[in-house]
Design a protein around this nucleic acid. Structure first.
Length: 505
DNA sequence: TTCGTTACGGTTGAA
DNA sequence: AGTTCAACCGTAACG
């Protein structure tokens, strides 16, 4: 049993715990959920119960045929003191998912499943307001806003890549060149070295060391490296690539499907489910949007939404074949995307064709794929709004007048926009996003911020920069301006005839 | 009521 | 093997 419905959701229970925590002192509670701990929400547990019971149909399977071992993998990583570490039955309840105020299920720290992300974008394209999308999908409006903003910005629904480290820029080759420059001109300044590294193509603007780094190299390394050490002699690559990690991060979609279409070892608990977001980029799809949108439908068909009795899955993503970045199989790629990898959404029990139209939302874009899509422990249905069927059978309250939810492929194609690189214009140089703690950065893409061209994005697809828009009009708005809805909505990207899109296959 | 913003606790993966 | 760090995440709440 994942959630203790009798007590209400974990999220709400935590809110109550925060009351005591707040009384005990600031941040004493350290709630596991996001949100500000110093504020205490006003939970209404009485109402929550019934809502949750609708919200969590599939999370309630108490093992059944799939009684799975929860402990070792769930939730917090070992070694993270701040992570949840609960013992006993309660840990079993609280390890895998939480319920937000809307009754939606989420996994803290993990991206929403792509199917949900896709649906957010699709609904928005159909003219449904974000607030309605938020309610319908039971995703926080901040998240909806973020996903839509990102989609408008990049054309991608995918989350960013999580984890990892920025590769060192002071590669042996760079050090060697610095040394050469210094030896050639002992009076050279660090900034001159930097310019020369750029001019000589040793580095590009993304990975050129800072002046301070060069100074440090000059101070710490060059002196002691007058003679090339064994490391450099032996490990110096024949031709140092400008972006040395390109080969690693170039669309590292792991794939659960072999190039022949054969399922690769999916976890025994994931019946026929691809282990990764991987959706064919065939577009337009022959499938109706009701199928595309009808995630619930396929969930129901597969039983995932109905409680998943007997549906077992590994709570640990790492246990699922093909979802981990380091295990990228060498598969043919199309536009840098592994074609077989684009065939199903992770963890969603669905046919590969169900979301075949999703390709239009997936990059080739500024966002590098990662291994993180759909790492939810629960089958995707857990994230879908339970309760009234979705889409509603009749005049959906969320649908714009005259816009039925059941839209067929052609209509969807018209309804959805797709940002084409050539229409987006080229990007200005992207500076790596600073992470200075003193800078109150936000994840919200709508805030003016350095473009999302992180090193990883560039490694994934340097040419994809064109997908990312320039920082939104450069107009930094004050918080007061941004609030109250005074900001005009960013228009959707230009809709392109699908025929004009070159997917390369 | 809507929505942009942001603090927060969390996960992840390379170093 | 365990830790650190810097990416990212979604939620909750403010304004």
């Amino acid at each position: 049993m994942k959630f203790n419905l009798g007590l209400g959701s974990r999220a709400w229970r935590v809110s109550w715990e925060r009351v005591a925590a707040a009384a005990a002192g600031p941040r004493a509670g350290g709630g596991a959920l996001g949100g500000r701990t110093q504020r205490v929400s006003s939970p209404r547990p009485g109402r929550r119960g019934s809502r949750l019971s609708r919200a969590l149909p599939l999370c309630l399977s108490s093992g059944g045929g799939g009684a799975r071992a929860l402990p070792d993998c769930a939730g917090p990583s070992p070694g993270h003191p701040g992570a949840r570490q609960l013992a006993g039955p309660r840990a079993m309840e609280q390890t895998y998912g939480e319920v937000n105020q809307l009754g939606g299920v989420f996994v803290n720290g993990r991206p929403l499943p792509n199917a949900i992300r896709l649906r957010i974008v699709e609904l928005a394209q159909l003219g449904i307001r974000p607030c309605d999308i938020s309610r319908q999908l039971r995703v926080s409006h901040g998240c909806v806003s973020k996903i839509l903003a990102r989609y408008n910005e990049t054309g991608s629904i995918l989350p960013g890549a999580i984890g990892g480290s920025k590769p060192r820029v002071t590669t042996p080759n760079v050090v060697k060149h610095i040394r050469d420059y210094k030896q050639g001109d002992p009076g050279i300044f660090a900034w001159e070295i930097r310019d020369r590294l750029l001019a000589d193509g040793v580095c590009d603007k993304y990975n050129v060391p800072s002046v301070s780094s060069i100074s440090r190299i000059l101070r710490n390394k060059i002196g002691s490296l007058a003679q090339p050490g064994p490391y450099e002699a032996s490990k110096q690559p024949p031709s140092q690539p400008t972006l040395p990690y390109n080969h690693i991060y170039q669309y590292p979609y792991p794939t659960p499907v072999s190039p022949t279409g054969t399922k690769m070892g999916s976890h025994p608990g994931v019946p026929g489910t691809a282990g990764h977001v991987s959706i064919p980029r065939s577009w337009p799809s022959a499938h109706s949007v009701s199928n595309i949108l009808g995630i619930r439908t396929f969930m129901e068909q597969t039983g995932a939404l109905a409680g998943s009795e007997g549906t077992t899955y590994s709570p640990k993503m790492e246990d699922w074949a093909g979802v981990n970045r380091p295990t990228f199989p060498a598969t043919p790629t199309v536009n840098g995307l592994e074609k077989p990898a684009l065939e199903a959404d992770i963890k969603y029990t669905q046919s590969a064709s169900t979301l075949s139209a999703v390709g239009g939302f997936l990059p080739a874009c500024a966002y590098p794929p990662s291994n993180q899509h759909g790492v939810y422990s629960a089958p995707g249905g857990g994230y879908l709004a339970p309760g009234p069927p979705w889409p509603p059978a009749q005049g959906p309250p969320l649908a714009p007048p005259g816009a039925g939810v059941t839209v067929h492929g052609g209509e969807l194609a018209a309804a959805m926009t797709f940002k084409h690189p050539s229409r987006e214009g080229s990007l200005p140089a992207r500076a790596p996003r600073p992470r200075t703690p003193s800078v109150a950065y936000t994840d919200c893409p709508s805030r003016p911020r350095p473009p999302r061209g992180t090193w990883r994005e560039r490694q994934a697809d340097p040419g994809a920069q064109v997908f990312a828009a320039a920082p939104a009009s450069g107009a930094r708005r004050t918080r007061g301006q941004a609030a109250r809805g005074g900001t005009p909505r960013q228009p959707p990207g230009p809709a392109l005839p699908l025929a004009s899109l070159n997917f390369g296959f």
